[in-house]
Amino acid sequence: MLDLLRKYGLPLNASSHGSAVDEIMVLFHWLMLFLFIGWGLFFIYTLFRFRASKNPKADYTGVKSHFSSGLEVAVAVIEFVILIGFAIPIWATRVNDVPNSATGAEEIRVIAQQFAWNIHYPGPDGIYGSLDINLVDEADNPIGLDRTDPNGVDDFVIINQLHIPVNKPIRIDLSSKDVIHSFFLPEFRVKQDAVPGMSIPLWFEATMTTDEFLKTTVGSEREGKGFEIACAQLCGLGHYRMKGYLTVHDQDSYDSWLVEQQEILKEEGDEDDWGDDGW
């Protein structure tokens, strides 16, 4: 069934918890298929057999057996097995005990806005600098990061480019500046609304780097297109173009990417210093 769902659109799964999500979809689609085919065969047979020309006199009583009650009980039982055996425990692993840096997770903030994803890394100190909406400047400081806060000196903010390491839990604290957005990573079975006024944690662990993924797309229509962040909640006229990119690195290349970001940050700082001197 998973192959069937994959054939009919479902993207491959690149996260550690995704197979559990897929498993529930598979179970439900089996149940759906079974019921639909069962009903369908019965339906077509009766339509044919009990047409008026063939069966001019209807039977007042019809079906006497209580087979259908058994069927209904069976459906209820299957649903509750899926519910208690799979659905509730899986959801609990999603929303309870969300890992953080203390438990070995990579922490990143994503702050959504019309129509972009601001990705906020805490930098080498692992602590986010404070934010102040009065400092918001759409060109230079979209999230209002306070650089005078010692914790904020090494923070860096990039737009629409999320970089993460493979095989490590990623914790994202998701919020929004303006309206509701929804952070969706189709290949990772991750979706979470970004609700203004709330900061909502989500977590996942990538099991495949972007390079590995790109190899699987060779020869398909999708060839050369990596992971993307989609907005799943209508957020205004630019909803359709609120797209971000996700790059999954192996640990080494992630580390060097982080170093690179610090260098860029330093260069920008130097430029600012130079500017201040001139003034």
């Binding site: 009903w39 019965f42 339906f43 009766t46 339509l47 009990f50 047409r51 008026a52 069966n55 001019p56 006199k57 209807a58 039977d59 009583t61 019809g62 079906v63 259908s68």
Partner: peptide, 11 residues
Amino acid sequence: FISLWGASIRY
């Protein structure tokens, strides 16, 4: 669905 069983269906 079961109501159809034993019917004399007018289409």
